[in-house]
């Protein structure tokens, strides 16, 4: 449990995501995904949700999470011990691929760009759908990423938010089991769009 006042972990198999060794393994998967943008990393095991696993790995009472579409179960938010917040002030924002947020997430500042938010976009599928062509740090020459069901408005918003490096947002695309990451430094062209 990430909430320190919850003393005992339930014994359900699905509850593995709350255990430190599981979170350590998940973090190493995330580390690979962040280091090599666009590579699909299979994060979750059977019965686990990649989104919940990555949130359990990265968030606790010291972080603020916005979930404007209520994608998480109340019970899971409570177990995370995370502070709920509006999109504009959240460290982590959970969104759907079909619904780009109306609000601008935190972009950080020139002095403190790390305060730019991490957006977790739940996508129907990775490794299928349209092709994204990626270049930038972590990518040797070019990386191709296929992702399904993402509203094209997302890519335009991402460009807008990331126009003034080092300010910007970092994206985690999460399917049911896998993740791929687009840090603010990754340059992206969408197949067929110029």
């Amino acid at each position: 449990m990430n909430d320190p006042m919850t003393l005992e972990a339930p014994r359900d198999v699905r509850m593995g995501v709350w255990q430190p060794p599981r979170q350590q393994r998940a973090f190493r998967g995330l580390l690979t995904a962040f280091s090599y943008p666009g590579r699909v990393v299979h994060l979750a095991d059977d019965g686990e949700s990649a989104t919940l696993l990555l949130l359990a790995t990265l968030t606790d009472g010291a972080s603020r999470l916005a979930d404007p579409e209520r994608r998480l179960a109340e019970d899971d938010i409570r177990r995370l011990g995370v502070r709920s917040s509006a999109v504009e002030s959240a460290d982590f924002v959970l969104c759907g691929a079909a619904h780009p947020p109306q609000m601008t997430p935190r972009l950080g500042s020139l002095e403190n760009p790390e305060q730019g938010a991490t957006l977790i976009i739940q996508v129907p599928a990775l490794e299928e759908g349209i092709e994204l062509h990626l270049t930038g740090p972590g990518i040797q020459a070019e990386q191709t990423l296929r992702v399904a069901g993402v509203d094209p408005a997302w890519w335009r918003l991402r460009d807008e938010w990331n126009v003034h490096f080092p300010l910007g947002v970092d994206l985690i695309l999460a399917s049911e089991r896998a993740v791929a990451v687009l840090p603010r430094t990754t340059r992206l062209t969408v197949e067929g769009v110029h």
């Binding site: 990430n2 430190p20 350590q24 580390l31 606790d60 009472g61 430094t185």
Partner: peptide, 24 residues
């Protein structure tokens, strides 16, 4: 403790996203 690790982990990921930036 796990809270300290989680904070370091969050910091590492931001440090990767902003190459060379000294993340506090």
């Amino acid at each position: 403790d796990e809270y300290a690790k989680r904070e370091v982990r969050r910091t590492i990921l931001k440090a990767i996203c902003i190459p060379g930036y000294q993340t506090p």
